[in-house]
Each structure stands twice: as structure tokens, then as C-alpha cells.
């Protein structure tokens, strides 16, 4: 069988239109018009369908009583049973609350920290110093929490840790940072910021690198001091990136760092430190309850999505830049 000619295809597709005009139609198809752009976009779209949209059928586990042998599609539907079970547990609600509180602190202190760091670093004039400091600042990003937990347990020890020795030196009482419920969340927030400060700053530094240096020279000639230059040139220059990061961080408000909490917490601080992922781990995965774990995951994702939609909407109203 021979492939139909182009004219033939067009005739089949638009039978009521004269051939000449049909050719025109194709020419006027917007994807055809931007065919080079379409080609450029295509691999990306295929990728998202194959590796993100297609596997989505797995989400149904959350609404099923999942059995290995029956498979995902063959398992029995149980409706919202898994969710009902979830919300009925007091411990789940406690973990949920902790997650929100810890994420909120991480957001309030952790979001501005790398921006501040990037700005301050940008103000250092000795180029080699700037590079040196930046290179060092992202070191901790590469160390796993397994290793860091060991280091922090020693560093924060009330009897032998250097930090407490310092506190005692200046006449304060030693604080049991990891064993005291009042301090534990602060420890989580502080260590989290410390670990990713330099790494998160990379994107802001990249944005600053994109700012035209002439702007600074002109401002200088006009007599603007350093703070004015930061406020009027640097900040507006990185504003779009800040907005995106802000929207995304708000979406992360329900995400937590499993590795961090798992490695740092102990029974004394369960009450304030137990978060959704550690909770799900203890009750779900340890006892092969995939449906249950998937339900928690889906719950988290829906909340994230709503948070991002709201943040994006606000960002659009306020600053005109948004995720899409």
C-alpha cells in the first residue's frame, strides 16, 4: 500500500474545503508555522508523558487494598477507606501539625537566609575570597544526614560539645539541644539552613551574575551608596528568581526532610519532632502497607498543589511574575 500524498491527506481531513485552501490551512496551522519550535519541545513532552503521566496510574493504590499478586489495576477498590483510617489516628494529626510548624519555621528563616548570604557574598570585593567562601559554603550539602547527625550529636553535647563549652564559658547554662523538646525544632531549622545555605544561594548568585554591571557603575557615578545599590539594582535584578523560589517553597510547606529528622530525633522529642514522613515510615512501610503510604503521599501532594496555586495567584497579583 502506498502512502497517501500530502494533497490526499489534506483532502481527507478537510473534505469540504477546496484543495488549494486546504494546503493553506496546513500552512496556517500554528504548530506547522512554528515547526522548528515544535521539534524543540517534542522530546520534553514525550519525556513527561512516559515518565510522569503514564506512571500516574499508580496513584490509584491510595484508593485500593493493594495486593501484590493482583497488581495495581487488579486490586480491590476501597474508596476513601485508607484516608479515613489516616485521619482517625491521633498520632497522624500530631505528625501533621509538627510538619507544618517545622516547615513554617524553616520557611520563615530558611527562605531569606540564602538570599541574604548571596547578597553579602556579592558585596565581597576580593574575587578570590568570594570564590573561596562560596566554594566552602556548599560543602555541607554533600554530606548525608547519617554523617552529620553523628557530628552534631557530638558538637551539641551538653557535657563535651564545643557549643555548650562556649555557653558555659560565658556564664550561661548548658543546653541539651537534642534532648530538650523546647530546643529540638530550632535545632532542626538551624541545621537545615546551615546545610543548604551555600547550595541554595547558587541560583541567586547566578541571577546576580546576569545583572548588567554597567548599572552599578552608573549608580555609583550618581552617588548611590552600597545599600541603595543593593536595594535598587541587586534586589530588582533577582526578583523574578526570588518569586519562583518563593512559590515553590510555599509548595514545600508540607514536605519534610525524612533523613534529617530520622537521624536526629530521639524519644524525648518525639512529641515535637515526629513528622509525616517519619510517621508514615514507622507505621506504613515497615509493615508493607503500600496503600496507606500512597494515601499519605497523595494527601501531601494535593496540599502542596493547592499551596502553590494560591502562592502563584498572589504572586501574579502582586508582582506580575509567576510560575506559568
Amino acid at each position: 500500500m502506498q502512502a497517501p500524498t500530502k494533497a490526499e491527506t489534506i483532502r481527507r481531513k478537510w473534505p469540504s474545503v477546496p484543495v488549494r485552501s486546504r494546503l493553506q490551512l496546513l500552512k496556517h496551522n500554528r504548530y506547522w508555522k512554528h515547526r522548528y519550535l515544535t521539534i524543540l519541545l517534542l522530546p520534553c513532552i514525550i519525556y513527561f508523558f512516559v515518565f510522569h503521566y503514564f506512571p500516574l496510574y499508580g496513584v490509584q493504590i491510595a484508593f485500593k487494598d493493594y495486593k501484590f499478586l493482583a497488581g495495581i489495576n487488579g486490586s480491590e477498590w476501597v474508596g476513601l477507606e485508607n484516608f479515613r483510617k489516616l485521619f482517625a489516628m491521633e498520632s497522624f494529626n500530631n505528625a501533621f501539625r509538627n510538619t507544618l510548624i517545622i516547615s513554617f519555621y524553616k520557611f520563615v528563616f530558611g527562605f531569606p537566609a540564602p538570599i541574604l548570604f548571596a547578597i553579602l557574598l556579592n558585596e565581597i570585593r576580593l574575587v578570590f575570597m568570594r570564590r573561596f567562601i562560596q566554594s566552602i559554603s556548599y560543602f555541607p550539602h554533600f554530606l548525608s544526614w547519617v554523617i552529620l547527625a553523628g557530628v552534631f550529636t557530638q558538637f551539641l553535647s551538653p557535657s563535651t560539645g564545643p557549643l555548650n563549652l562556649l555557653l558555659k564559658e560565658i556564664g550561661l547554662d548548658a543546653v541539651y539541644f537534642l534532648g530538650n523538646p523546647e530546643w529540638f525544632r530550632s535545632v532542626l531549622v538551624a541545621t537545615d539552613i546551615w546545610k543548604d545555605l551555600g547550595w541554595s544561594a547558587i541560583i541567586y548568585l547566578a541571577a546576580m551574575a546576569g545583572i548588567n554591571p554597567e548599572l552599578y557603575e552608573v549608580a555609583k557615578v550618581d552617588g548611590a551608596n552600597r545599600f541603595q545599590r543593593i536595594r535598587n539594582i541587586t534586589l530588582p535584578g533577582i526578583a523574578p528568581v526570588v518569586t519562583i523560589m518563593l512559590i515553590l517553597s510555599i509548595g514545600k510547606i508540607i514536605q519534610d526532610d525524612f533523613d534529617q529528622v530520622m537521624n536526629l530525633y530521639n524519644p524525648a522529642v518525639y512529641g515535637v519532632g515526629d513528622v509525616l514522613s517519619t510517621y508514615t515510615y514507622r507505621t506504613g512501610i515497615e509493615s508493607i502497607q503500600y496503600s496507606f503510604a500512597t494515601a499519605v503521599g497523595l494527601f501531601k501532594n494535593v496540599i502542596s498543589l493547592i499551596a502553590v496555586l494560591i502562592a502563584n495567584w498572589i504572586a501574579k497579583k502582586v508582582s506580575d511574575s509567576s510560575l506559568w
Partner: peptide, 19 residues
């Protein structure tokens, strides 16, 4: 939007493994 949406949903380990 099609692309952004993927940030929030994943089918989990098993479907990807099967793929």
C-alpha cells in the same frame, strides 16, 4: 502547566520500575 503539574504528582516506585 502540563509540565508544572508533574512537580506535584508521582505514581510511585512501582509503575516506574515496571516501565
Amino acid at each position: 502547566q502540563l509540565i508544572v503539574l508533574t512537580m506535584f504528582f508521582s505514581g510511585g516506585l512501582i509503575p516506574t520500575y515496571l516501565m
